[in-house]
Structure formats: structure tokens, C-alpha cells
Amino acid sequence: MERTVLDLWVGIFVAAGIAALLVLALKVGSAGTTFNVGETYRVAAEFDNIGGLKVRAPVKSAGVVVGRVDDIQFENQRFVARVVMKIDQRYQFPKDTSVSILTSGLLGEQYIGLEAGGDSAMLKDGDKLKITQSAVVLEKLIGQFLYNKAAEGGAK
């Protein structure tokens, strides 16, 4: 086969392969959200129980994803879970923002919900959020419900 035809075909092949890699990265995967590492700030929060929260779980406010969970560690001094979140620099929250661990859907994944407070000072990199609400543990909820039922039955 002639050299130029060969080169053309190989060129098409390599270009299509690289295009396929780009599609995998951008359309199938979510490289867009992983790349903007420089434009985030980190805040920490402590929870009594994080349930099934995982690293890279979304941080949402009003249902919009504003960041990701960056790190989860067990704090051995006070026996709580310390969760570090990376929040997009474009979104600023007051210092008294409350954090809770919520579940999307009945059996869905767990995420962190931020509810803005009224403080005029904004959160900075390395701050700690003080108002936290732990994940709901289904067994505890059922236990409490049964206990309340029993207490009602006793009162009658």
C-alpha cells in the first residue's frame, strides 16, 4: 500500500482513539468535577455517627452539589467522626451554617446537606462547622418508635 494512504489511515485511527479517550473522560466520566482542585476550600465538621457516608460523596446545599467529602477520620479523643469537605470557591457560606447527613431516596446514597445560617462572617479554609446533625440510623429510629408505643400502651 502507498505510504500516504497508510499514514492517513493510521492518522484517522489514532485521532479516533484519542477522541474516544476524551469522550470517556468528559462525557462518560466526570473529569470536569475532579479537575478543579485549586478552586476549593476545606472545612471540617464532627458527627456522632456518619452512617454510610463515603469519601467523594456530594455536599449539597438546597439540592445543588457545591462540593465533595474529602476525608473521613475517627477522632479518638472524643470518639466522633471528623469529616473534611472540599467546597467550591464560588460558593460562600456563613460561619454558623449547619451540616447534616441526609439520604437521597429511601435506600439511596448518603450526602451532606448544608443549611446556611445568618452570620455575616463567611467560612474560610480550615474552619470547623459547629452545628452538626448525625445520620439517621434506621435501627435506632425503629427502637425509639417501639419504645414510644410501649410507653403509650402503659399510660392507658
Binding site: V14, A16, G17, I18, A20, L21, V23, L24, V28
Partner: peptide, 8 residues
């Protein structure tokens, strides 16, 4: 390249 095209 072939594997990436296969996936896409």
C-alpha cells in the same frame, strides 16, 4: 486506543 473505542 482500541479498548477506548470499544468502551465508547
Amino acid at each position: 486506543l482500541l479498548a477506548a473505542m470499544f468502551s465508547v
